[in-house]
Simulated assay, not measured.
Amino acid sequence: MFDSFHIELDGRDLEIQTKRFDCILETYRQGDWIAGATFGIAVYFDVLHLDADGRLVYSPDGVRVRTLTLFVVIAHGVFVTYQLCDGELTSEAIAQKLRQLREEWRNSSRLHSVLVESLQTKQEQIRLLQARLNRAAAVIDSARRLRSGDPLNGIFDRFREETQRLIKGDEPLDVVAWVLANDEAATGSFRDNAGSDPLAEYRL
C-alpha cells in the first residue's frame, strides 16, 4: 500500500508514490491535508528517473533517463509546495536544501498566506462540486417528470441546456455526465452583474 503526490513537470501531471504516511491509496495535491503527516514543518526528498516520454522509471539500469531530485514541503500536515532540481544531488546538497526549505517555511506570514489561499481553493472546488451534484439531481428529477408526461416548460426550464437536451431526447445518463464534466454547467447561466455595482467589492 502507498499514497501518491501529484506534481507538475513540463506541463504534465506526474504521480509520485510514497510509503511515508498512512498508505491508504490516497492521492494528494498542493493544498491537501495528508493523513499521517506530523505537526510542524517537514521536508522530504526523492530521486526521480524519467524516460524520454516523461514517465517514471523505477529500474533505470541500462535505460537512458532524465534524473531529478524532488523536494516536498509539508507544513502542519498540509502539502504546501515542491521543488525539482536537475540531477541526483549529493548528500551534502540534499541536506543543505532540506535546511533551506525548512527555514523558508518557518516564516509564519508566508505560511499563513499559502494556507489561506489553499483553503479558498478547496472551498471553491467544494462549491463547484456541490453545484454539479445539485444540477445532476435536477436532471434526474426532470427526466422523471418527462417520463411521467409532465411538460418541461417552466420559466427556468427554457434556459437550462440540460433540460433542453432531455426534451430533444438525449439519454438522461448522457445529460448527467455532461453536467458533471462541464464547468459552465456547474457554475450556471445566471450570474450577478457585480460590475454594475461600484460597492459590490465591499458588500457582505
Rank of each mutant, 00 (worst) to 15 (best):
L115W: 04
L115D: 03
V116Y: 08
E117T: 09
E117R: 15
S118Y: 15
S118D: 15
L119R: 12
L119Q: 12
L119V: 08
L119P: 00
Q120P: 00
Q120D: 11
Q120T: 08
Q120R: 15
T121V: 11
T121W: 11
T121C: 11
K122L: 11
Q123V: 07
E124K: 13
E124D: 09
E124M: 13
E124R: 15
E124P: 00
Q125N: 11
Q125P: 01
Q125G: 06
Q125I: 06
Q125L: 15
I126N: 07
I126S: 08
I126Q: 13
I126Y: 12
R127A: 15
R127Y: 12
L128N: 10
L128H: 08
L129V: 05
L129N: 12
L129I: 05
Q130P: 01
Q130A: 15
Q130I: 03
A131Y: 10
R132H: 10
R132A: 11
R132T: 03
R132N: 08
R132G: 06
L133F: 08
L133Q: 13
L133G: 02
N134L: 11
N134H: 09
R135E: 13
R135M: 03
A136N: 01
A136C: 04
A136S: 10
A137S: 11
A138T: 00
A138R: 11
V139F: 02
V139G: 02
V139A: 06
I140K: 12
I140R: 13
I140L: 12
I140P: 00
I140A: 14
D141N: 09
D141S: 12
D141W: 02
S142T: 03
S142F: 07
A143M: 06
A143R: 06
A143N: 07
A143K: 06
R144L: 12
R145S: 10
R145H: 07
R145Y: 02
R145I: 01
L146I: 01
L146A: 09
R147K: 14
R147M: 04
S148T: 04
G149L: 04
G149W: 05
D150S: 06
D150P: 00
P151M: 02
P151L: 04
P151D: 04
L152D: 02
L152G: 02
L152N: 02
L152V: 08
L152W: 03
L152A: 04
N153G: 03
N153W: 01
G154D: 05
G154C: 02
G154Q: 08
I155S: 07
I155N: 05
I155T: 03
I155L: 09
I155A: 08
F156M: 09
F156E: 13
F156N: 10
D157H: 02
R158M: 05
R158A: 14
R158Q: 13
R158Y: 05
F159Y: 14
R160P: 00
R160E: 15
E161H: 10
E161W: 01
E162C: 12
E162Y: 15
E162W: 13
